[in-house]
Design a binder for these strands. Structure first.
Lengths: 338, 338
DNA sequence: ATGAAAGCGCTAACAG
DNA sequence: CTGTTAGCGCTTTCAT
């Protein structure tokens, strides 16, 4: 790469040592205070002052190379856009890691997966990797392990063999929505299945909804909809012409719940009296609209701290069986819409 | 750290070399194909097979240490939660970087800033750093430069001296919203200023709105609201009692636009006939509700690719003056609500 | 309490 | 076209 060179080279611990008039090992002792290191207060002071003065930042690569480990926890950016959920999760996770002096790095490559992806992740020699289960393969896990990654965790729909996984099944979300509506007496329900970037997710929720409906002996109609407002309006108009229209809708996610509520009211139907609506994800706006939206939520925040806890347990050598099959259950946040 | 050791040590290029029956430099040549490296096709083949066989992933730390550079672009996670905007930006940015074989790493520590933050970032010895302008200080920039970071970029409200900055002023957003409403004939406007995590952002937008209103000689009322639905309802009821209520509202962001539209209709007012509403951020749901929401948008996607382009320009040695003061302007996405 | 020295995995200059 | 070798910045014995 024909890059403009920066002027002089970065300061090293040797520069700090020289300036402070001590040896490099002393600098290292001051900065890392390992178990059996004794440094006089005065020396320590001098070293720290020198560090400040030349703006020294220890090289993580060099440190990692020498020590064979690192303080990096790598989290590949999820393939699916997750919006607010992602930020909630990351916040909680990062906070948990901070307490262990670990650094969360989110790898921006959404396409990395399998053995190749593992190589990309392994290249950084992270301490731990938390990846979506469906981006891990046996080969990939092997590559990570070989590369010295101490802990490989996963999250997603299915547990990857041998990898502690936070199971997070979107079918549960769909099923729970339906069970909630059935419990409220609905026997004629529609399920929106949004297309677009979230189609795969929506489909999982649909599957769960479907099996819950079958179990309950309740009629469930699948309605595929695009991110097009008119499409939804057509659907509602259709319902209005039917003699036996659905009395409730599971909208697949909150955006679509919002849309369908809006469309229903536009057509003169009231929510939840004429038609009940349930969304999923429990986005903040669920609480902000009239009627407020009932939504099926995953405990994203809890997952974040749970993942951090599991890592902590692992690092302190405690067994962490509780994360081996940790199943994250959705819950219904009941509000006015359904 | 008392970590469980992984069994054997990670495979190195020496292992690959041994297995392929070549020298370590040959392995390096095959993997990096530098300008003047000639390797026979057959040898290359053998090396690559060996790489696959033992699941070898070159150590980025070692590579970085030796070569004095890296392919990492570091993006500290923004302090403000940005929801979908963040993902849009990241997607676009990462895609642009991918084309240059650069890796986007998002640093999960939201608190890092100033000289200390810079040290945290510099530790990774990234090729480039793109940070929020207000998290950079002169000292911090110096630390980064010293540490060999080739390109320091910023984004935010004000340009950091000497650092190419994508200027992204939320006051413009507020101002534009007001100008739009004034152009539509409104002379009595309310501005919601949401509290909560986005308070700082909201306040900037308010400031812009205020000055635009003064310029236009139009009355603008500030209304502070919390993430509480009833609060908004009270506000609307207040308006209903006034003889001269606002004819338009700038809601500060889309969530609140949604909320206020919902509240207005709940109180029997229609949007935009009785009260026009404008939001900000242009979130996907703006297009999905009745009435569709008019919103002031920053070109987040454009910013992402713009940042990547600037980096590309920089790396190829081309001047990138266009990014020196690159101002990202908001635009109004006009829909039915206002 | 401090210093000298070895070596982590890799690349690049140089020799062959 | 391939191999030998030095050394990137750091931590960690082992001496002193």
């Amino acid at each position: 790469m024909s890059l403009p060179e920066s002027g002089r080279k970065p300061p090293t611990s040797a520069d700090v040592a020289r300036l402070a008039g001590v040896s490099r090992s002393t600098v290292s002792y001051v900065l890392n205070s390992p178990p059996g290191a004794r440094v006089s207060a005065e020396t320590r002071e001098r070293v720290l002052k020198a560090v400040q003065e030349i703006g020294y930042a220890p090289s993580a690569p060099a440190r990692s190379l020498r020590s064979g480990t690192s303080d990096i926890v790598l989290f590949p950016l999820p393939v699916q856009p997750m919006g607010q959920l992602l930020e909630q999760f990351i916040d909680e996770f990062a906070e948990g890691l901070r307490r262990q002096d670990l650094k969360l790095l989110i790898h921006g490559d959404r396409y990395a997966r399998g053995a190749d992806g593992a190589r990309t992740w392994a290249a950084l020699r992270p301490l731990a990797v938390l990846a979506e289960a469906n981006r891990l393969t046996d080969d990939g896990v092997k590559v990570l392990r070989r590369a010295g990654v101490r802990a490989v965790f996963a999250w997603g729909r299915e547990q990857h063999p041998g990898v502690p996984t936070a199971i997070f099944d979107n079918r549960d979300t769909g099923a729970l929505a339906i069970r909630h509506l059935v419990a409220r007496g609905h026997r004629r329900i529609a399920c929106l299945v949004p297309s677009g970037p979230l189609a795969a997710l929506a489909n999982e929720r649909w599957e769960g909804a479907k099996s819950a409906a079958e179990e309950a002996g309740c009629r469930l109609d699948r309605v595929d909809v695009g991110y097009v407002r008119d499409h939804v309006l057509t659907v509602v108009r259709d319902w209005q012409r039917q003699t036996d229209p659905p009395t409730a809708v599971f909208a697949g996610n909150d955006d679509f719940a919002l849309m369908i509520v809006s469309a229903l009211r536009e057509c003169g139907w009231s929510v939840p009296e004429d038609v009940a609506v349930v969304g999923a994800d429990d986005l903040p706006f669920c609480d902000l609209v009239w009627p407020r939206l009932t939504s099926v939520a995953m405990h994203t925040r809890t997952m974040g701290s749970g993942a951090a806890d599991a890592l902590t347990a692992f690092m302190t050598g405690r067994p962490f069986k509780h994360f081996d099959h940790m199943v994250v259950h959705p819950r219904v946040v009941v509000r006015e819409s359904g």
